[in-house]
Design a protein around this nucleic acid. Sequence first.
RNA 1: GUGGCCGUAGCUCAGCUUGGUUAGAGCACCUGGUUGUGGUCCAGGAUGUCGCGGGUUCGAAUCCCGUCGGUCACCCCA
Length: 411
Amino acid sequence: MNFTPPKGTDDIFPPTSRAWRRTLIIWENLAERYGYDLVMGPIFESTDVFARGVGESTEVVQKQMYTFEDKGGRSLTLRPEGTASVVRAFLGSGVQGEMKLAYSGPMFRYERPQAGRRRQFYQTGVEYLATAAPDADAEVIEIGYRFLEELGFPAVEVALNSIGDAACRPAYVEALRIYLNEKRELLCDESLATLETNPLRVLDCKVCAPHLIDSPKAVDYLCGECASHFASIRERLDGVGVPYRLEPRLVRGLDYYTRTAFEYIATGFDAAQNAVGGGGRYDGLAETLGGPAVPGVGLAMGIDRILLAAGQTGADIAPLDLFVVVASPELRERAAGFLSDLRRAGVRADMTPDQRSVKAQFRAANRRKATGAAIIGDEWNSSRVVVRNLTTSIQELISVEEVAEWAKNNR
RNA sequence: GUGGCCGUAGCUCAGCUUGGUUAGAGCACCUGGUUGUGGUCCAGGAUGUCGCGGGUUCGAAUCCCGUCGGUCACCCCA
């Protein structure tokens, strides 16, 4: 084999793909129950959508975009995140009033791969658009938490912060700049550089963090409106029973965030990339994209990281309830009809594509991780079938009509 | 973009330090033991450009240089 997947991309193959399928089904179901309609858009956009939406100064735009020119000379970019495109689509739709949208799909960033960081990675997310109400923030934070909960995710922390808005953030940034300047000799070279361009992000630096524990907190500089918005979110989260931890140093790397910022941290996961989801409010994004002032709040969950952190291989998820074993060639046609009946009755069933020895068919059943087998043999003439529980090896003779029910109970 | 580690059978790896007969193991796969019973057990079977290129040497999986790929971390984020 000469071809391997491009650097930083993965073939998601059985049995691992079983956990993916299960995870995405849980996601779709959850989003629907919370009232989020599906939105699907292009996987590439005009480069400007991201350059302006995400922010020219961000790492993502400066170094990580897959940008190319098409045959018409247009500059296009594989989407590095979902929010900017969804907001672009919303603005283009002409919809008035609030809207709740859910999306799901691959994103692309050109980076050096490592555990939990790929060049193509998969995000599911929601955007609650055209509302500035704090309940929307709380609901979005809740849905991410419930998602992890329904997946049986082992240990997760919700980190929450408010970074203010255009009215109050400048005063905070100024206070932070003064503080950081006083600590200049403690900062690493890179932080000294980012101090000039974006002081907020110095707080992200792992090297400098120990020296910055007494840094000014954004929450102490919030204006009245931002402060009450933040308080309402916390109240609502308490009300619905979503635990969170206030994290004054939480700053996100995309420029469009205002007020609310949050992340889901997988605790006890020993890889460096343990943020399995994140999001925030972006009240200025729509205007940045040339539209009217449309507030919004959203989140993105990193499916690759969630499955990595959960340690799921999918090996324990049985893909088949019943394997149909055909004892002799004459019965094959009857068996095929029987198989079709079972499948239409909701049983996950299969058989080998051609006639083989019974032994080989059982081996196939075992390889396919079927939990049960049904033997189509002489008993068929009296409308009976031998069913075998492949876990316990107990088998019994039951009537044809009972097989579908038996198979479902045998899962 | 910077740095550490690793490339040997389909998979996981041993062998490399101290170069030398046919390069090994486990798992997986195939056949049989069981002419209607898998998974377990027993017997047998197939499997390799030792990542690639060059160098040193009588001789290289083993030493040296280069290169490509993977992986982890920094950075940033999902």
